[in-house]
Nucleic acid binder design. Sequence first.
RNA 1: UGGGGCGUCGUCAAGCGGUAAGACACAGGAUUUUGGUUCCUGCAUUCGGAGGUUCGAAUCCUCCCGCCCCAGCCA
Length: 576
Amino acid sequence: MPDTRESAPVPGGAPSHFIRQIIAADVAAGKHGGRVVTRFPPEPNGYLHIGHAKSICLNFGVAAEFGGVTHLRFDDTDPSKESLEYVEAIQRDVRWLGFDWKDKLFFASDYFERLYGYAEQLIRAGKAYVDHLSAEEIREYRGTLTRPGRNSPYRDRPAAENLDLFRRMRAGEFRDGECVLRAKIDMASPNLVMRDPTLYRIRRTPHYRTGTDWCIYPMYDFAHCLSDMIEGITHSLCTLEFENNRELYDWVLAALDTPHRPRQIEFARLNLSRTVLSKRRLIELVEGGHVSGWDDPRMPTLSGLRRRGYTPEAIRDFCERIGVARADNRVDIALLEHCLREDLNRRAPRAMAVLRPLKVTIVNYPADRVEELPARNHPEDPAAGSRTVPFSRELWIERDDFREDPPPKFYRLAPGREVRLRYAYLIRCVEVVREAATGAVSELRCTYDPESRGGEAPDGRKVKATLHWVSAPHALEAEVRLYDHLFLKENPAEVEEGKSFTEALNPGSLEVLRGCRLEPALGAAAPGDRYQFERLGYFCADLKDHRPGTPVFNRTATLRDTWAKIEARGGAPPQR
RNA sequence: UGGGGCGUCGUCAAGCGGUAAGACACAGGAUUUUGGUUCCUGCAUUCGGAGGUUCGAAUCCUCCCGCCCCAGCCA
């Protein structure tokens, strides 16, 4: 007999997690004829974020592993908050993430008529009733965590009366809130969800898909399980907060004696350090003007991550690595960034850009001379090819790469020191020019070694540092946006009484630099193109604001910076 | 002091009665025309705690402690 517990590796060698194990066991046992059908069921009332990505990867991933399919179903049962804009944005994001629902696109609103039929069936079976208690009264009657609730005075109406009332609800004979349809379960249940939950409410709000066809709408607990059943979902994966609802999910399907019984399985939602993932807080960031919108590159939304320069591959890898379990968690955002760098390091072409320019004049280089020096587009990938970068007498280097009074372990440029300009020459700083008024360093005068073309001196002498640079007369000017974590706190959601989570916002999460200098090859960048600016980080041309003549780049991630770490450790204070 | 869950390294997370995987982070070192990459090395005598069962327990039992979820006509 086969071991149906299936603790052994699963097809594809993916790491084991409890949902994979359950599904593998079900498949092995021939449940549902060995079929696997999952679904991703967003409500179209907001944008998808990295937490949804976990669910999307889980649902599409696990179904694919077992040769199954995944439905994209919009859980659009509350017309007051939903819209087509969100439906479109969600589809765009799921597709971008790399998943394909084929022709399996569904809407709970398409099931309204069938759902209504099931509700009547429930009424006929004496398992649901129309209640005229007000919302406040229902709350009072529900009891508390420790005290049982009381039956509504309308609870024992005959089925025929309930049926008539429910039909009149549909016909629009009652005002919003005047009555609801409730399941008749147990007002004393220790599980509050089971204390005669509301199944239908009256809402005279036009629905973005069904218009004014309906004035009654099913609640999540009624619509979701039945939608799963209708679609033949085998494994209905959701987050832990729906655990209490599982009893009701099963109750509805059993009460209706449905032919197909999906199984709800809950897993822990993702929490990420230094950001927020709740819809409520994300909305507050957008509406409070703390970010520029849902796609602000600092947002953990998929549209924000996309604009920031994240790749779908990196996000999928991240979702695979964090695992799936039932324990509350807060994943270190450094893991997401690691996945990103790993992917980008492999595929981003290299280029040179100077963010905070400092002028360098090569005093012994002819003023009218320009050389085109070959540079590799990727140090480890010859297939990425090469390009040419112009070199001339006047250059820009990074201000951070020069120190008048270099601290220990700083081995970049300083008075009298020699360094290498990447792909170009060895240069030595012979003079520091200052602004008369402020005394600030305004220019460096250097000599170059004509024998070191390409960066290697014939005498074999070594140099400790290699700097990136851009030829001044050939440079493109650009705006570069430096992004950092949105929040300073590990868990921004944890706030003191009376304070807002927005107080933990990182004031330095965005720094806009203008007058940055790019090497000419970057002029070919199209919106969304990603590069590694050597020694700085990964950058992408902004999807919205980048124009060929006026380039705008977003910093996707910095490179790991060992020197910054040494410096921060207190060795030498930064001098700027 | 109702019910439902969850506690394994700083953070995730395997582990399914046979003697604590892996990843990130962190710390060293090697290579390097990116202080990047890559490569080595180190990093839980112990699994929330206490008892018990067993030749043997993170895994089974008992009690205790801590954290999360539920009182929408939201999902």
